[in-house]
Design a protein around this nucleic acid. Structure first.
Lengths: 144, 144
DNA sequence: ATAACTTGTAACCACTTGAATTACATGTTA
DNA sequence: TAACATGTAATTCAAGTGGTTACAAGTTAT
């Protein structure tokens, strides 16, 4: 089980919008960089748009960033592409037996623990911005 | 996308083994507490056995804990039931275009960031033990 | 206005995984 | 030997992912 690649593709798209900001970033162009098809890019770009991260309009070629690079965290992207429903990173088995001490209390006991873990994950994603990613990409590229 | 309920079921099983340690915890008995079927319980119990967390043998009724309660963390269970392959919580899109600055460097840039986030998650799971969960269950049960 | 191009979506497919279920071989014990 | 337990394979069903095609609707240049 892995979190959908929509997340990493979303990061890819935003980074590309910055690095190729002089060009026109159509879904077709982006798809070639990601190595997938334009329809999927448009789908993800649409999600990023709904989250207010990019500007993109029907008929008008190209997407652009809607916010400052340094003001978009990976957590924003994570939420935008909807890879994990809220508070549902960990699946909890339903309907445990209420006639059993464990069954009766396991969910209420586990949920807050899972929340803490999930928040730790989100916090780690929240401190990294697309600006950091772009810098990382440019930095790594120098060595090639 | 959610992490498989095998994880929460694993925690349920281990907690039950402690709370019902005076009884004989057959897969059938455990299944009734979890509210699923015995075959699935045996499958998960087998994974917990492979990780050295429980004792269970063919033909012999009942499973027992193989380690101290306070010495089993949720991270141990998480790894035991194999819900997430190592370093693969986040799926990364394959084969980005090497002719593009972003495509050429996105994977190497993102991987370490994802690792940090994944480790943050694991760290949070590593500080909680089954003993904590058992205490939580007993505590909550008092109020009911 | 029309042609060419773009985005927005819906629909479908193939594939993988999860969970439930059934069945049965194997091991243990009375 | 009978009764019961675990181990495990096979099957089924549902859901999610990613790839693909198709097409409606918006935009722009001529």
């Amino acid at each position: 089980m892995s979190i959908s690649t929509r997340f990493s593709v979303g990061i890819h798209i935003l980074s590309l919008l910055e690095i190729n900001k002089e060009g026109v970033n159509t879904s077709d162009f982006i798809a070639k960089s990601v190595n997938t098809n334009p329809a999927l890019i448009r789908k993800i770009t649409g999600m990023l748009k709904n989250a207010g991260l990019v500007n993109v309009r029907p008929g008008i070629a190209g997407a652009t960033l809607a916010k400052e690079l340094s003001n978009i965290t990976l957590l924003d992207v994570y939420h935008a592409v909807n890879v994990v429903s809220d508070k549902e990173l960990f699946g909890i088995h339903e309907n445990p037996n209420p006639a059993c001490t464990v069954g009766r209390n396991i969910q209420d006991t586990i949920e807050p623990i899972f929340s803490v873990a999930e928040l730790a994950l989100e916090k780690a994603l929240g401190v990294v911005t697309i600006e950091d990613v772009v810098k990382g990409i440019l930095e790594k590229d120098k060595t090639k």
